[in-house]
Design a protein around this nucleic acid. Structure first.
Lengths: 208, 208
DNA sequence: CTACTATGTAGGCATTGGCTACATAGAGTG
DNA sequence: CACTCTATGTAGCCAATGCCTACATAGTAG
């Protein structure tokens, strides 16, 4: 009703915010730049001034998603508690975020980002692993975990929890509750790190 | 040159086969029913006679993918060797398939299948876990692994390897080689299952 | 021979992403 | 203030896509 000014003023932020809503409701397939423009009351070419591509918008969305997620994760990592319970809390933060924003998670880990955005995305996407590595290092130095390649162990933990998060987000876990799976996964990983990986006797699967 | 018969004869199979090629080259976004029809020399509406939807084609593609993958996995599970090396081989089969067919893997685990196809997909998608569960059960009964909820342990292993497969397929592992990650993941999981999960002392992260 | 069904064709339609030319605002500068 | 420059938004065009309906052709069953 109130006549809109010629310039929106905060179109870029509004686009990202609205897009984030839309993808969770209708999936990435259901995201249309033109519909987005209609939702915000601007012309169909206006988004093009802020994102040269639809992919550019998705990249911005991914970046935004990583910022949200990393905030949750570092928040969880800074909570009080022993190493193990902090480890569990971080895992829960990751999985909870995935379940709350499944489509956004998929966009974040999509493979088809623009080359420009890739660098920033790659770096921000590794923050979670950095947190995991830090806790593992602390626990190892405290003698709570067996010694071992921290980088690799952190990667394995990250990868495993990512799998849990992805499947939970996709609602592909039949009966099992997501919480139970997360606890079981962290328990098994932690138990493995406590025990340490025994040196392979003979061939351990490292084949050609 | 040779005048084509009015009816293609094997259009459905040809569509699936060609689509499987296209998505690996151009991604799911690059798959167009009309282009597919042009590739096969039929009219643009012909695919509609075999797949009511684009999604229906993707569902068929997913089913086909699961059949291929399950074949590799069961083949790996039937190879000779002790429990642990068979476990590693299964994991490698999964990850290798993911790396060889990354887009197909994404289609297989996509969330937006048609309700009709979901049942079949869900059941065939669980074959991998069945294999994992069987090996874990055997190893537990042989006393090689500590006792524990086999269903849950198999799910955790499946989920962890899925994470490794997804990230490897997406080429999101910076320096680490995929083979090394797979070995490290199976090692850690196996070590955890050998040690068993100790009973939680006090709060173990199971919150509200 | 005559339905009937399966399969393929031809054309239409709304929607989409991306492009170019143009309009408007606001900031800077003389 | 007048002028320019740039950022932002508008309007219209285009090819491509998915899906729809009407029609053509073939093979089959009665």
């Amino acid at each position: 009703m109130t006549d809109q000014p010629y310039h929106h003023g905060k179109l870029r932020e509004a686009l990202v915010a609205r897009a984030r809503e839309v993808i969770e409701e209708a999936g990435v397939e259901g995201l249309s730049l033109r519909q987005l423009a209609r939702d915000l009351g601007v012309s169909h070419a206006a988004p093009g001034k802020h994102f040269r591509d639809k992919q550019a918008l998705l990249d911005a969305l991914a970046l935004d998603g990583f910022r949200s997620m990393n905030a949750r994760i570092t928040e969880a990592s800074e909570a009080a508690g022993d190493h193990r319970s902090r480890f569990v809390r971080i895992a829960r933060a990751y999985v909870d975020f995935a379940v709350a924003h499944p489509v956004l998670l998929a966009v974040m880990h999509s493979t088809k980002h623009h080359p420009d955005a890739s660098n920033e995305l790659r770096s921000i996407g590794e923050d979670g692993m950095t947190v995991a590595r830090a806790i593992i290092a602390e626990a190892q130095e405290a003698g709570e975990l067996a010694p071992g390649d921290r980088e690799l162990l952190a990667l394995v933990c990250f990868v495993s929890l990512h799998g849990a998060a992805v499947l939970a987000a996709g609602n592909l876990l039949d009966g099992t509750s997501i919480g139970a799976l997360t606890v079981a996964t962290t328990d098994l990983l932690w138990a493995g790190m406590v025990a340490g990986i025994p040196a392979p006797r003979g061939a351990s699967g490292i084949g050609p």
